[in-house]
């Protein structure tokens, strides 16, 4: 377990860090210019040699800083995780330094984050999509993107020719129902959260 002394020392040594919370694990927020330094510090001088996870959060279109990258390091000595939040520069073309030179495991995580959020990791050796196909135009985990999806052509033109198939929004009206829990009964009635294609709104074309 990480104790208070460790945290204090860490914060003194690196003034670009700030403590966010220490509930399930130590959560720090890091200045984006230093986050590569901090990553190499954790791996080389501390014992956090396992980068277990790297992902991002979309705080919504109206948020002041829209995207932040979150990653978790694990130490086999402390038997504990450290979580680091970093805010991305620019809400339109979010960008941040890649840490895959320090932690090779970050390579795929960063590609996935790019794929899902469109956050570009500079200096990444192979910054391209990993889960969706290369030509896919959207970033699915952004908040404005509907779960049902958006009409797009299929990546293989010859298959499209024989089958006439394309990427179509999925029907949502049978989907899992959630109640908003507030307002009059008629509004809070359980319904699918994604309303891009329901009885009220036409199937998007």
């Amino acid at each position: 377990m990480i104790d208070q002394d460790f945290i204090d020392e860490l914060l003194v040594k690196h003034e670009y860090l700030s403590l966010v919370s220490h509930e399930d694990c130590l959560t720090l927020s890091c200045n984006r210019d230093h986050w590569l330094n901090f990553a190499s510090y954790l791996s080389l001088e501390e014992t956090f040699d396992l980068l277990v996870d790297l992902t991002a959060i979309d705080h919504g279109e109206d948020a002041e800083v829209r995207f932040s990258v979150v990653c978790h390091y694990y130490s086999r000595v402390h038997h504990d995780y450290i979580r680091v939040h970093v805010e991305c520069a620019s809400n339109e073309n979010p960008e941040i330094l890649s840490i895959s030179s320090v932690y090779p495991s970050a390579d795929w995580h960063e590609r996935e984050t790019f794929d899902m959020f469109g956050i570009r990791f500079t200096n990444h050796p192979n910054m391209k999509r990993i889960l969706m196909w290369d030509e896919y135009p959207y970033f699915p985990l952004r908040k404005e993107f509907p779960l049902a999806g958006i009409d797009t052509p299929l990546p293989a033109p010859d298959v499209v020719e024989v089958t006439d198939a394309s990427v179509e929004p999925a029907p949502m009206m049978g989907g899992p129902f959630v109640s908003s829990g507030s307002g009059p009964m008629s509004d809070s009635e359980p319904r699918a959260k994604d309303e891009s294609w329901t009885e009220k709104s036409e199937k998007p074309v």
Partner: peptide, 9 residues
């Protein structure tokens, strides 16, 4: 059960 952007219906 996969009504989502990635799954062919």
């Amino acid at each position: 059960m996969y009504r989502s952007y990635a799954v062919m219906q």
